[in-house]
Amino acid sequence: MACPYLAYRAAAGGHAFDEERAFCTATGEFVQPMRADICNGRYDLAHADDCEIYRERVDGAGTAHDEET
């Protein structure tokens, strides 16, 4: 099941792309491609379990930081 905060947009926040890309309406930012698999519920991934941004919004359980470079 896709995350309710997921949208697909071709432009936002000064970024513009040829193809519509995953956009998080909770953060107001385009989503990293790997995180988009969580947003879309692909494989065994689920936003309710695996996304700290969603969890923080829903129940304040996440820390909403990212160590990726």
């Binding site: 970024h15 792309f17 890309r21 930012e29 385009f30 989503v31 990293q32 491609p33 790997m34 990726e68």
Partner: peptide, 10 residues
């Protein structure tokens, strides 16, 4: 790679 994309660097 497969983590970030053009949103990080066009």
């Amino acid at each position: 790679g497969g983590v970030h994309g053009k949103e990080a660097n066009p």
